[in-house]
């Protein structure tokens, strides 16, 4: 149903005879002038004309598809498309298919993902208006799960498990349709595949935060243990250490670095293994410094920061400053 006139120029189409295209007005001193590819200017000329007429119609909707075909980042075309879809009360299932391709092929395009988000909200609102509450809920839940699957498909097709807009869409769906409670197995699967995927680690935190907040001791312990286990499997992985410190120290939801003795034990174990292999682990040293500071052992903590200055030269200034700060605090 979209762009079915194929290659016939708009100027030769019977149903566009009443419209005079509006040329782009760059003024007398244009900059960053794009040498537009064939067809680009004509389609945009008609789009400007339709905008000026403020016309929302089937042909306007079809025209926006052509504009988007030329430039999928044209937010004005997507905006106008939504206006048409709303004004004409058009069935939105086809629209989901229309955006499938764009989100999959242009995963870094803000407009496509935002359009999809709008679409899902609009479809669920319409279902609630049209169907009985039970039927509507069923249909909406099934659509939401399709969206989660679609996000996974996009990641797999592009072999990119860190696409920011995709993750944003997933979290929107989980939030909107209250599906956080089913999400942990999905995160664990992604982390089994790539323990270094920080987007998955972040998602884990957000899932936990949306499931249980304020944190219970049980959940906190589970998450700390998850991080510790993960560190054992790959101690040079920054994500797991960061995740650990999301639950330790000072701040909302945290307990003291000294309250979980296993953390210090593991830090020392990692540092021993590293030493045996004539290497180092800046994350373990940093965590140990935090623990020593929490214990009030300033001298030992400063020694860790001095060690870090040696082994982590690119952050030398930061570690030196951390040592200074500690001495300053201790008086």
């Amino acid at each position: 149903m979209y762009a079915d006139d194929g290659d016939v120029p708009y100027s030769e189409r019977e149903d566009w005879k009443d419209v005079t295209p509006v040329p782009q007005n760059d003024g007398p001193h244009p900059l960053a002038v794009i040498r537009y590819p064939p067809g680009f200017e004509e389609v945009h000329g008609y789009f400007r004309a339709i905008q000026q007429k403020n016309e929302t119609s089937k042909r306007a909707l079809q025209l926006t598809a052509d504009v988007i075909q030329h430039n999928s980042a044209n937010y004005t075309a997507w905006y106008y498309r939504r206006r048409c879809l709303k004004d004409l009360a058009i069935e939105l299932d086809d629209e989901r298919i229309f955006t499938d391709k764009w989100a999959r092929d242009c995963p870094k395009n803000y407009q496509v993902w935002y359009h999809r988000r709008w679409l899902i909200s609009e479809i669920s609102a319409r279902k609630r208006a049209e169907l009985s509450p039970e039927e509507a809920e069923k249909a909406i839940q099934s659509m939401a799960r399709e969206e989660l699957q679609y996000h996974l498909d996009c990641m797999q097709v592009n072999n990119d498990y860190k696409n920011y807009n995709g993750w944003s869409h997933r979290q929107f769906i989980l939030q909107q349709f209250k599906l956080w409670h089913e999400e942990l197995p999905f995160v664990e699967q992604l982390l089994r595949e790539d323990i270094r995927n920080n987007s998955a680690w972040n998602h884990r935190f957000t899932v936990v935060r949306n499931q249980t907040w304020p944190l219970t001791d049980t959940v906190r312990t589970r998450e700390i243990n998850f991080a510790l286990e993960s560190i054992r499997k790959c101690a040079n992985n920054e994500c797991a250490w960061n995740y650990l410190s999301a639950f330790l120290g000072e701040g909302d939801g945290k307990v003291s670095w000294t309250s979980v003795p296993e953390v210090e034990t593991l830090c020392r174990e990692v540092l021993d293994v590293a030493e045996q292999q004539h290497t180092s682990c800046r994350f373990a040293s940093q965590a140990l410094a935090d623990i020593l500071e929490a214990k009030g052992d300033v001298t030992a903590a400063v020694a860790q920061y001095e060690h870090l200055q040696e082994i982590d030269r690119i952050r030398e200034k930061y570690w030196r400053w951390k040592a200074e700060l500690l001495r300053h605090k201790a008086g």
Partner: peptide, 24 residues
């Protein structure tokens, strides 16, 4: 060169022209 003229493969950035002016 880019400040005045950009090739056809920049058509997908036609909604970012002030950005080109700033970047350049």
């Amino acid at each position: 060169r880019g400040f005045t003229s950009l090739p056809p493969n920049f058509a997908g950035l036609d909604a970012s022209r002030p950005w080109f002016v700033f970047w350049i």
